[in-house]
């Protein structure tokens, strides 16, 4: 049963002792949002990590304005890695469509593909690191270098965290049966939201490093 919710201001100005209000409140079903807790939990985590990245970006902006800022080159490999993330996101849209139609075989195949792409991305990022180190761009060399390694490392860690959830997703899809279908669909949805989030974060970070 989904009911329309009052706005937050309306809720906070209620007088809970007022008999008229009491009558309305008694049929309240005890939820603030019409959202599944899993989805809300994912949003919570995405907010926390967005705040974290925002704070890093603020410090980046603070550092960038000084004269000793030296731009870092972007190896071509980074573009390829970005493309891989982009493709993963598209595949996840396909997975979602497949799971809506209950085509779990297809979803399973695509999920494996996405996991594979994630590994390729991580290896790719590692190669970029090696490439940079070979060229003499050490982490302590300049502030831009430091931020480059920091951003890529943090994004990589987020992706690793995503892979843990990916394992949980694929386990549910692997042994799909009638009871689990609803749960599997839910998990797939959360997993793909997270992947889109990772792409968005990466595009912001990459863009930031590209233009400054």
């Amino acid at each position: 049963m989904e009911t329309k919710k009052d706005s937050i201001i309306d809720q906070l100005t209620q007088k809970p002792w007022d008999p008229a209000q009491v009558k309305i409140d008694n049929s309240h079903e005890g939820k603030t949002f019409n959202l599944h807790v899993g989805k809300l939990g994912l949003r919570y985590l995405m907010i926390v990590s967005t705040i974290m990245f925002c704070l890093f970006i603020v410090t980046y902006g603070d550092r960038m304005i000084y004269d000793d800022w030296v731009k870092m080159p972007e190896p071509f490999l980074l573009w390829i890695n970005t493309f891989i993330l982009f493709v993963s996101s598209i595949i996840f849209i396909r997975i979602q469509i497949a799971s809506k139609k209950n085509q779990f075989k297809k979803a399973k195949r695509d999920l494996i593909l996405v996991g594979f792409l994630a590994l390729v991305f991580l290896i790719g990022q590692f190669l970029v690191w090696q490439n940079m180190v070979d060229k003499g761009y050490y982490v302590y060399g300049s502030p831009a270098n430091a931020y480059f390694y920091l951003f890529t490392a943090l994004h990589g860690l987020h992706l690793l965290g995503g892979l843990v959830y990916w394992v949980m997703t694929i386990r549910k899809v692997w042994n799909i049966n009638d009871i689990d279908i609803r749960k599997a669909k839910h998990t797939i949805e959360l997993c793909s939201i997270y992947w889109h989030f990772l792409l968005a974060v990466w595009i912001v970070l990459f863009g930031l490093m590209l233009f400054t």
Partner: peptide
Amino acid sequence: RTRGMTLM
């Protein structure tokens, strides 16, 4: 929250 438990 349980039924009837509004924020206020």
